[in-house]
């Protein structure tokens, strides 16, 4: 929780400091920044839920169970017929995919109850993080100064440098991540609108874009998670639409519900982000070897799940800075 609060503080600190210099009151600055952030998140979630429920109502009014089953069966047939012969022989005789899907939906409904519990838990943690963040934002410089004051004279300059370097690496990493997430969100939005132009009939494009941007914060796995909402929406909106079913990517590859179009679009966005934008914006802010990043992700994911993955890289970056300073101190120990 404290780690989250610290990261949020790092992101918001610059804003609070700038505002404080303008209005000469730290309390009010913290309040203003927090209100703006909460307002933004509230508006986003609120309008997302209202639009989503609208979509769901429309979807359920349009589709009944039989149509869904029918759609699925045609889809399965279409795929089967498109497959080469030897692959057709390899698949199991049980083609009741729709039945399996219905079973799956039952399981999802059952787990909604346990999800409610998880949401309650999440809300508690979120409120705690929120409170910690406000305290840290208001008292950051006081905390920092008392931390610096606690360093013994012998290690004072080295300790101060260590604190500066940690702050620098964390904030530059976060700034880079924020910028690359924003760029993914913007490019995904543009891509989705482009697909709509060709008749993909996608709705909630802004939300899909933002979710893709946020998911992109998790290295390696995030980009694929970001595709899921777009695919779901494409499926929901186009079910029962024969044109969308028969759609072909570049007029060659069968791509029902624009499925492969969406995947291709996201792949292009990720390539632009990964090869052009991130190197230019983030540069070597953390400077970790890809293998080290992967190991960090594995460890973070095992300990804390997706959130652990989100923070694995900055945490490893901080660890690297600390180890580097310790090595430096050991090397210069006789001079301290």
């Amino acid at each position: 929780m404290l780690v989250f609060a610290f990261l949020f503080t790092t992101v918001l600190l610059a804003g609070v400091d700038a505002l404080e210099r303008k209005i000469q009151n730290r309390g009010l600055s913290v309040l203003a920044v927090v209100v703006v952030i909460l307002g933004g998140i509230g508006t986003f979630i609120g309008s997302f839920i209202s639009q989503m429920s609208q979509e769901a109502v429309e979807f359920s009014s349009r589709i009944d169970k039989d149509t869904l089953t029918h759609e699925f069966n045609t889809l399965v047939e279409k795929f089967t017929s498109a497959m080469p012969d030897f692959l057709q022989n390899m698949q199991s005789s049980d083609t009741d995919l729709a039945g399996k899907l219905a079973e799956g939906i039952d399981i999802v409904a059952g787990s909604l109850v346990s999800m409610a519990g998880a949401i309650g838990n999440f809300m508690f943690i979120a409120v705690m993080v929120f409170i910690f963040t406000i305290i840290l934002l208001a008292e950051y410089h006081v905390f920092r100064k008392s931390l610096v004051n606690a360093i013994p004279n012998k290690y004072f300059e080295v300790g101060l440098k260590l604190i500066y370097n940690i702050e620098k690496s964390v904030s530059s990493y976060l700034r880079g991540q924020f910028l690359s997430a924003a760029s993914v969100a913007a490019m995904s939005l543009a891509g989705l609108l482009l697909l709509n132009f060709f008749g993909a009939n996608l709705t909630l494009t802004i939300f899909i874009g933002i979710i893709a941007g946020l998911a992109n914060l998790i290295p390696l796995i995030g980009p694929f998670v970001g595709m899921i909402p777009a695919i779901l929406i494409a499926f929901m909106n186009n079910i029962g639409n024969d044109v969308a079913m028969a759609h072909q990517l570049f007029g060659v590859i069968p791509s029902p519900f624009f499925l492969f179009d969406i995947i291709l679009m996201f792949l292009i966005v990720q390539q632009i982000e990964g090869n052009l934008i991130t190197p230019a914006l983030v540069g070597k802010s953390v400077g970790l070897h890809p293998i080290l990043i992967m190991i960090a992700l594995l460890i973070g994911g095992t300990i804390l799940g997706p959130l652990g993955m989100l923070f694995a890289v900055p945490a490893t970056g901080v660890l690297k800075v600390i180890l580097k300073e310790i090595a430096f101190v050991r090397q210069n120990a006789h001079l301290l």
Binding site: E157, L335, L336
Partner: peptide, 8 residues
């Protein structure tokens, strides 16, 4: 501080 120590 000591002579030759890194200076901040």
């Amino acid at each position: 501080f000591k002579n030759r120590a890194p200076g901040e």
